[in-house]
Amino acid sequence: MALLACAPGTALAQKGPASDAAIGRQLDTLDYNYEIDADGDYQMVFDLDDERTQLVYVRSAIENYGSLSVREIWSPGFRIKQGEFPAVIANRLLLDSNSAKIGSWVRQGDMAMYVVKIDANASADQLSDAIDAAIKTADKLEQELTLGADEF
């Protein structure tokens, strides 16, 4: 179960055709406020203990590999203004991924996103734990790499 409360917001935006209603029901059970973005993913902003906020997405799409079905939880931690990630940043992300209990860093366009992959049929408590891991890990690295800025 996540230890953090979700920021006030819209309880449910208009559902897109690709949204997974089962995730919405789990988030409702957890009393998380969310919106559904244009991709059908569930977007939330959490208030953290130190007056910071953190953005997180629970993807509606399920990825499959053999008999495995996986859902992804994404949280941004760093944005590059242009070009490639500096080597020192890329290496820091790799080191953080190595020490993470669950999840790892990926590049998505101009952003470093922390991604936690869980079983597509995970319980609400397991989903909450994955969200908690994503937001705490992403915010911690955002603070480190941006000298305390809070963009996400």
Score class of each variant (00 low, 15 high):
residue 23 I to Q: 02
residue 23 I to T: 08
residue 23 I to S: 01
residue 24 G to F: 06
residue 24 G to T: 05
residue 25 R to E: 15
residue 25 R to D: 13
residue 25 R to Y: 04
residue 25 R to L: 10
residue 25 R to I: 07
residue 25 R to H: 12
residue 25 R to C: 01
residue 25 R to S: 09
residue 26 Q to M: 15
residue 26 Q to P: 00
residue 26 Q to C: 05
residue 27 L to F: 10
residue 27 L to K: 01
residue 27 L to G: 02
residue 27 L to N: 04
residue 27 L to W: 03
residue 28 D to I: 00
residue 28 D to T: 12
residue 28 D to F: 01
residue 29 T to M: 01
residue 29 T to G: 01
residue 29 T to E: 12
residue 29 T to D: 11
residue 29 T to A: 12
residue 30 L to I: 02
residue 30 L to T: 04
residue 30 L to R: 01
residue 30 L to V: 03
residue 31 D to H: 14
residue 31 D to W: 09
residue 31 D to P: 00
residue 32 Y to C: 08
residue 32 Y to N: 00
residue 32 Y to T: 00
residue 33 N to Q: 13
residue 33 N to K: 13
residue 33 N to A: 14
residue 33 N to C: 07
residue 34 Y to N: 04
residue 34 Y to S: 02
residue 34 Y to G: 00
residue 34 Y to W: 05
residue 35 E to K: 10
residue 35 E to S: 09
residue 35 E to I: 07
residue 36 I to Y: 06
residue 36 I to D: 03
residue 37 D to V: 00
residue 37 D to W: 01
residue 37 D to K: 00
residue 38 A to M: 05
residue 38 A to W: 02
residue 38 A to E: 13
residue 39 D to C: 05
residue 39 D to F: 06
residue 40 G to Q: 06
residue 40 G to M: 07
residue 40 G to K: 07
residue 41 D to T: 08
residue 41 D to E: 11
residue 41 D to G: 05
residue 41 D to V: 09
residue 41 D to C: 09
residue 41 D to K: 03
residue 41 D to P: 04
residue 42 Y to W: 15
residue 42 Y to C: 03
residue 42 Y to N: 03
residue 43 Q to L: 13
residue 44 M to K: 01
residue 44 M to A: 08
residue 44 M to Q: 05
residue 44 M to D: 03
residue 44 M to E: 03
residue 44 M to S: 06
residue 45 V to M: 10
residue 45 V to L: 11
residue 45 V to W: 11
residue 45 V to S: 04
residue 46 F to N: 06
residue 46 F to C: 01
residue 46 F to T: 09
residue 47 D to C: 02
residue 47 D to Y: 04
residue 47 D to S: 12
residue 47 D to F: 03
residue 47 D to E: 10
residue 47 D to N: 13
residue 48 L to D: 07
residue 49 D to G: 13
residue 49 D to P: 10
residue 49 D to K: 07
residue 49 D to M: 05
residue 49 D to I: 04
residue 49 D to E: 13
residue 50 D to C: 05
residue 50 D to Q: 10
residue 50 D to A: 12
residue 50 D to K: 11
residue 50 D to W: 09
residue 50 D to Y: 09
residue 51 E to D: 15
residue 51 E to H: 13
residue 51 E to I: 00
residue 52 R to T: 15
residue 53 T to S: 12
residue 53 T to D: 08
residue 53 T to N: 14
residue 54 Q to R: 12
residue 54 Q to H: 12
residue 54 Q to D: 08
residue 54 Q to L: 10
residue 54 Q to V: 07
residue 54 Q to P: 11
residue 55 L to W: 14
residue 55 L to N: 13
residue 55 L to H: 15
residue 55 L to G: 01
residue 56 V to Y: 02
residue 56 V to Q: 10
residue 56 V to H: 06
residue 56 V to L: 04
residue 57 Y to F: 15
residue 57 Y to D: 02
residue 57 Y to Q: 05
residue 57 Y to K: 07
residue 57 Y to C: 04
residue 57 Y to T: 07
residue 57 Y to L: 11
residue 58 V to Y: 07
residue 58 V to E: 04
residue 59 R to D: 03
residue 59 R to H: 12
residue 59 R to S: 08
residue 59 R to Q: 13
residue 60 S to K: 06
residue 60 S to A: 13
residue 61 A to M: 11
residue 61 A to C: 00
residue 61 A to D: 11
residue 62 I to K: 06
residue 62 I to H: 10
residue 62 I to Y: 05
residue 63 E to W: 13
residue 63 E to R: 14
residue 64 N to R: 09
residue 64 N to I: 03
residue 65 Y to V: 09
residue 65 Y to W: 13
residue 66 G to H: 10
residue 67 S to N: 14
